[in-house]
Structure formats: C-alpha cells, structure tokens
Design a protein around this nucleic acid. Structure first.
Lengths: 343, 343
DNA sequence: ACAGACTATTTGAACGTTCATATTCTTTAG
DNA sequence: CTAAAGAATATGAACGTTCAAATAGTCTGT
C-alpha cells in the first residue's frame, strides 16, 4: 500500500512548512512565485490531494450538495426528465469540484428533517430542490436557517402565480414553449388547434395553457377556439380520451401539456385512422419515449438548466448575502416525423 | 443560530467525559447501564449528532458509497431501469446510515481515475458498479486495491459466459424470466412464439435468448421454431422491423429482449391489423412506458436488487476478508391488457 | 548602517472524533 | 482492614487541514 501523502509529509520532503503548501492551494498570492512553482510541481509529482474530511472539519464546508431523489412519478413517462436533470447536475457539480449527495424523503416535512440531519452530520453546503409547491415550506425553512439553495421550478404562490422570488431559481418558460409550438402549427395552416392539459389551478399547467391562449389570440383565430381545450390527469389514457373528445369538436392538431398526454392522443388518433391529426400532436418534456415513437415535443433542455442551477448555487456560496437571481430558460421545439410502421 | 452540540459540550453539561459518550454510541457494553441510559436521554434531548467529518478524519471511513451515473442510453426507454435502481439504492443505503455520492465518467478508464480520486479525497467506503463488461477492468482495479464493491450485473468473461466470481454481485435471472414468459404463452395455446433480441455475443442478450430456447425445447414444439428469431439493435424501429419479418414467418406471439423492441413490435402489429398478435407481445424491463401503453413485460425488480446490493456491501465492510456472494434474483412477469383506444 | 515597512514563511492552536493508556472507583479474597 | 483484581470513567494524542499570530527575510530611504 502506497503511503498516504499529506501536507506534513510533502512539506518535509520539500523542506517547507505545511502552511506554505496550503497557501499555494488556497491563497497563491501570499507565496513567492518561485516557491509556488516548486510546490505545484511537487504536488503533481506526488499525487497529493487535500483530504476533504480534514478540510470539512476545519472549514465547516464539505463541497457537497444535497438533492432529494423523488420516487418515479405514478405515470413514469415524465420521470425521465428528472433523470436527465440529475445527470446534468452531477456533471456540472463535478466540473466545479463539488459532489452530489442523494437522499430520500416521503414528504416535504420529512425532507426538512433530512436537511437538518445532513447539515449537522455532513455539513452539506447547499441543497437543490426539484419540484416547488405552492407556498413551499422547504424554502421557508432553508431561508430561515440561512442555508443556500436553488430550486428547479419557480415559486408559485397560493394564487398559482409566480411570486417575486426570495431565492434563486431556474425554470423553463413553458408558456413561451407552448406559444412557439402553437405558432408552428398555425404556420402550417392549422386553425383548429386544441390544447390538452390538466385541470386549472396548477402553476405549471396554467402557465403552459396560457401560451396556447396567447398564440391563438394573437393569430386572430375566429371565435370558438377556446372551447378546444380539455383537462384531465397526466396519463396516457387521459390523452386518448381527451383527443377523442376534441376530435369530435373539430380539432385538427393538438398541443399537450405532457408527453404522456401526447402519447395517448397520438395513439388514439392513429388507431382511429386520422394519421394527419396524429402527426400534428406536440407533447411537452421531450422524453425518450416521445423521441422513440416519433412524437414532436417541447424540450426542457434539462442539462442547461442543471448547469444554471449549479452556477447560481456557487454564486450563493461565494457571496452569501447576494441578491437572488431568477433564470427563465427558453425551451426548444423538437419536431419529428411520426413513425409509420405500416408501409 | 443554535450552538452546535459536540461531545465536549454535551459531556460538560452532563458531568461526564467525552469518551464516555463516545462509548455509549460505539461500545455500550463498556459503560454502566445507569450512565448509558442517562447519556442516551441527554443525546436525544440535546439533538446531538456525531460529526461525520471528525469521524471520517479519525477512522478513514465516510459512510459514503460511490456510484457512477451513466448517461441515458441512446434509446432512453431502458434508462428508467437504472433510475429505479438508483432510487432503491439511495433508500436502502439511507436506512443503514450510509449516504450515496454520485459521479460521472465517460469511459471505464476515467471511472477508475475517479475511484482513485474519491478514495483519497473523500474516503469513500465502497463502490456500486452498474453495467459490467466482459473482463471488466474496473473490478480488477478495485480488487487489486482492496476496495469493497458490489456489481449490479454478473461478471461475463470473454466467451460471454458468467465466470466464477471473485466478487459479490447481484443480478436478475433473465433466462428464467424469459422461460417463464414463454411458458405463459405456451399455456395460452401459442406455439409459434418468436424471440426478438440482439445479435449473439452479448452476455445479457444471449442469456435471455436461452430462456426462450429452453422453454420451447422443453415444450416439445415441432421443428422450425428456432427460425422464429430475429436480432437487431435495441430500438423501437428495430422492434417493428423484426416483428414484420417474424410475422411473415408465421409467428403469433413475441418475446422481446427489451421494452424498446416490444414497443416497436406491438405498435407495428397493431397498426397492421393483428390485434391478437399485438396483445401477445412481452417485453423486458417493465419500464414505465410499457406500463403506460399496456405492454406486458418482465420486471427486474430493481428495488429488491438494490437492497441486496447494499446488504452485500455492508457484509464486505463488516468483514473485509469475507467470501464474495453472488445473488441471482428471479424477475417477475407483469401481465397487462394492451390499451385499445378505438372503441 | 539602521529603523521602518513590507513580503514571505513558520508555528501553535483548533475543528470533533476515537484509540491507547491512565486513573479512579468498586468489589472480592485473604 | 488491606491488597489485588476488575469495572468504569477520564486524559493525552492523533487524524489533516486552515486561521491567527509570530518570526524571519527583503527592501527603501536617510
């Protein structure tokens, strides 16, 4: 077994003191250029790496960020979104020298307990929250305890509208994504464009819905289009049911609030021999399934979002009192040709 | 800000020494029952938690396990499997007081570099490996450096057969799963059962294929069934292509090596007006998509697998010299009714 | 040549544990 | 009543780092 290299052993070998090496790493300006170079070379040669436990003990900082891993959504189609986000987050954190620690919790309340535990036991430096509720208690707790955090998702208040943020967040502008998708269908000549969403009241769902309303209004589509809207739960069957109904009301194309809905709609339309309508379905989240089946979808660009989250987190860690920053990313419309398996 | 509770402050408050409290936690037998109770109560009352950085520094042990997060598979449908595994792993680790640290790597070689780094910097206690290659270099390195690890997936040697394991692993018995699924179709009266898989040579793929061969042989199906096999890449379109070809050769039902293939097969059969054949497709992995669409599938029970991985890991951590243990779990056939969207 | 002002480097202490050893207290036997 | 043995608890040192303060080294201007 190779001997462990520490500040002390390396210092002895070089004939300098611990602190000099420490300074080379943490405050290079304090050290003469010549020694600095000599030390840097020695570090590279010896493979020395500062021990994080010792640093953590001394600095109360662990270079570790925490994130709750949520159980796969009931439906599961959309679970893949957080999967991509997690990957991007790990990567971005790693690039900056941070590590990611996962934990589980069944409820938000339990999540807060885990914060407390992880802070005192493992000195986590901050947390990333993934799905923000209305009047989220977690953000209240974290703010009160002055723990750095960034949310992926806007804070929505009781009225279901985004509130002026007390904290940094990153989100994807669903409204503009849906608007753009609607405009795309309009440009293709569609007029009877339906919106397949969720019951009014959810911040995210209403936001996406508004994108459709805006585009349709702006296009000056004659009256009646606002009835081309259907709300149900977030599932494949709900997509089929909704599509059936909207088709009956004359819809020729469909914007859906999720890929689950889009998948159901597309399958129904195809099977009921409306191939053109089936090809004019646009989903949301750009899940792998939509890609595999060839359904167009609005992509959240989760990798970019993850990178932004880490950027905001580091800003907070560097200047604790800083002003919170909101980041709203534009999603990207992924257009595809529906797979037609019959020749 | 609440004052931090440490061994010293708590000891002072109680009028005992640091070490006594430490013993209550780590070696209760050394301490008089009466004091033990008194200390335990004080710990609960004060909310004291041992600081893990200090423990880590002293013990060279971090209660932290590492796992590489792999980029979502090209296809993505099957990515959900590792997602469920990750969740189960986090949960099981957490229940035993361990935490999970994620990291990224592009290649196996890079992964080994990360092991080295994480071991010296963060004193990780062990690693969980997810996809084992043939003659996996990572397991070689970890064994040589006496680092505890468990793989999810059998070690396959160059011949593509499972080797006598030098290390602990957990895997799902794909062969028996496929055999069971085939037997299920046989019991339903099917004889022309096709197998839609990958090119020969992959350990996992060949193993699943063998399950079909075994069941068909055992059932004494008349000659000719062995031609009802198709191999392609792991994608939805490949499933459709394969199904089309096999249908031409007389297949009435289909066992697939993955849900991607099953999805493609099912969609093709449905669209080409073979609803009965479409309803007799069985996939592998029981992904959320298969569930959503109503395709039957063989489930890997990843949560149970994750729990086993943690159990084996803890065994290794407790007795470092112990004999490696292989665990082969039986998968579970999930039968579903295909969603029929047309009335 | 020397005080004064920097610059560069070193030393002691501390972060919160646990191991090894030392001390104190309790019991038992002679 | 005391010595010895054993049980219970306490103390010093160490893990590897960084902060704060101390020391050594270099330069400037007179």
């Amino acid at each position: 077994m190779a001997e462990r290299v520490t500040l002390v052993t390396l210092a002895a070998e070089l004939g300098v003191s611990r602190q000099t090496i420490s300074n080379v790493l943490n405050a290079p300006s304090r050290v003469k250029e010549e020694t600095r170079v000599r030390v840097v070379e020695a570090i590279a040669r010896s493979g020395y790496r500062p021990n994080s436990a010792a640093r953590q003990l001394r600095n109360r900082t662990s270079m570790n960020l925490g994130m709750r891993l949520r159980p796969a959504a009931s439906d599961g189609v959309n679970g893949a979104v957080l999967d991509g986000f997690l990957h991007g987050l790990t990567e971005a954190a790693q690039d900056r020298g941070y590590r990611l620690t996962l934990f589980c919790a069944d409820t938000d309340e339990q999540e807060i307990h885990r914060y407390e535990e992880l802070l005192s036991v493992a000195d986590l430096d901050g947390f990333v929250l993934t799905s923000t509720n209305r009047d989220d208690q977690r953000t209240v707790w974290l703010t009160e305890h002055e723990v750095p955090f960034v949310t992926f998702g806007r804070p929505w208040n009781t009225a279901g509208k985004p509130v002026l943020s007390q904290h940094s967040w990153v989100d994807v502008d669903g409204r503009s994504g849906v608007r753009e998708a609607t405009e795309h269908l309009l440009a293709q000549g569609h007029q009877q464009i339906a919106f397949l969403g969720w019951p009014a009241g959810s911040g995210v769902g209403d936001d996406r819905w508004m994108g459709w309303v805006e585009a349709m209004t702006a296009a000056g589509i004659p009256d009646g289009w606002s009835a081309l809207r259907c709300a149900g739960d977030d599932s494949v069957p709900a997509g089929s049911t909704g599509a059936a109904e909207l088709l009956g009301r004359g819809a020729t194309s469909f914007i859906c609030a999720s890929d689950s809905l889009a998948l159901g709609a597309s399958a129904y339309l195809w099977q009921s021999h409306h191939p053109d309508a089936a090809a004019s379905v646009i989903g949301f989240d750009n899940t792998p399934v939509a890609a595999a089946v060839g359904v167009s979808s609005i992509s959240q660009l989760v990798r970019a979002a993850a990178r932004e989250v880490i950027r905001l987190m580091l800003r907070q860690l560097q200047e604790p009192g800083g002003r919170p920053e909101p980041v709203l990313l534009a999603p990207k419309l992924e257009l595809r040709d529906l797979q037609r398996f019959t020749q």
